[in-house]
Design a protein around this nucleic acid. Structure first.
Lengths: 228, 228
DNA sequence: GGAATTCCTTGATCTGGGTCAAAAAAACGG
DNA sequence: CCGTTTTTTTGACCCAGATCAAGGAATTCC
């Protein structure tokens, strides 16, 4: 897949005229990152928009004591680091490749020019940021108002949805990362998974999860039912 | 102050041509809300953008057990509920007037038309959403990676900055609301304020706060120093 | 301006989930 | 494929901060 047709397939750039698409492909930088390699660090001066071409990237905040909170895990086709393009000029969080990845980089000026010329792109971009605000609002709600069992059941149900509603699916990332995404520790995650298995709601075999009692899991997610 | 000139003074609409400004003033609805009155509820269908004309409004998430997490407190001139204008069509959180308020409402279609016609407005709107994403990222960091004393000292330092760096200032809202904004309870807030006073970092007299040792407070905010 | 309501503080207690440590299980590299 | 490293699990313990309860202090509203 070449970059030009990859870009044209992105929802964000759908409806962009041929010439702009061509211009875009012309100014895009293509960068490769090994697993574990840092892409940028919170506070760095930012010069443009990033898009995952292949692989996976985590966006995270790091505390002084080393604990991390993952904000997003981005996969192929997903844009990230839009914020500094439109406001502030420096990254609000850090990014690291969690597997070997190729990341496209669109310099700021090229992108803003294009937005000025294409109102549809502006509205698409506004929709992207709005979706992200929705996700963040939900993350805040999770961290502040819900416990680890609630968050984990909701996450498992979400993964099942992504897998087309199948009761059986694979955890897409290591458990330690899931813990940091849900705002907890590996130890707690492990214990809660254990309790859910014991309660007969799920079966866990390595990365494979089977949902045995979806209704019970939904009850835990909605805090209608405790775990022990 | 009439609505037309109020709108023209907002950073968001700066640079909008006269005719658009006039059109805007023509389609705006002006709604009054008593203190404690709900403006909208999470999940409601949303039909446009809101802007605080006078008074103050809290945007919040409510848990099933009644606990609330405040996402923002908006004052005069601040737009809110942009998200459903651009994505999803329903409110991601609830809003309530915390004092008698007038709220302007701009119907969705009028606004998106105007954005289509004015690239500068599109970029301003993108900047507004980006700033909000930055704030949310910081809230997530606070909730997940920092303790209540850290969050509170940072908040007090922030209020002092807003007051022009003065060591003496008034809490802008009731302490219970501050607690819900910081993701804690009134009781904990009260105790932490007590410890800070005892440590000689601040003096508290009702709503009046005096910062006695800014450096120490900054150390607590940055988790370089514990409280007891 | 006094009664009623709401807000804040303080004390006692409880608990979810974090930390530390070590074993078990997987994944990886040569 | 075997040894090494990384990840996950399990156990024991601890602690920040929530909850419950009850006074005290402010506001609010006739």
């Amino acid at each position: 897949m070449n970059i030009r047709s990859f870009l044209s397939r992105l929802p964000l750039f759908n409806g962009l005229p041929e010439e702009d698409l061509k211009a875009l492909a012309g100014i895009v930088l293509d960068r490769s990152h090994a697993a574990g390699e840092s892409i940028f660090t919170e506070g760095d001066r930012a010069a443009g928009l990033n898009i995952v071409f292949s692989g996976r990237v985590k966006i995270f905040k790091l505390a002084s004591n080393g604990k991390e909170q993952i904000l997003h895990i981005m996969g192929p086709g997903e844009p990230f680091a839009e914020v500094p393009v439109f406001q502030g000029g420096h990254y609000p969080a850090s990014a690291e490749a969690i597997e070997a990845s190729r990341v496209l980089f669109i310099p700021r000026d090229g992108l803003t020019d294009m937005i000025r010329r294409n109102p549809a792109l502006a509205l698409d971009m506004l929709a992207v940021l709005s979706r992200r605000l929705r996700e963040f609002a939900s993350t805040i709600e999770n961290l502040s108002l819900r416990g680890v069992p609630e968050r984990l059941s909701a996450y498992l149900l979400h993964l099942s949805d992504l897998a087309g509603g199948s009761a059986e699916f694979e955890l897409d990332i290591k458990k330690g990362l899931i813990a940091n995404l849900l705002g907890t520790t590996g130890e707690s995650l492990s214990r809660v998974l254990g309790k859910m298995s014991q309660a007969g709601m799920i079966r866990v075999g390595g990365k494979k999860i089977t949902i045995l009692d979806r209704a019970a899991l939904a009850d835990v997610a909605a805090a209608r039912q405790a775990l022990d």
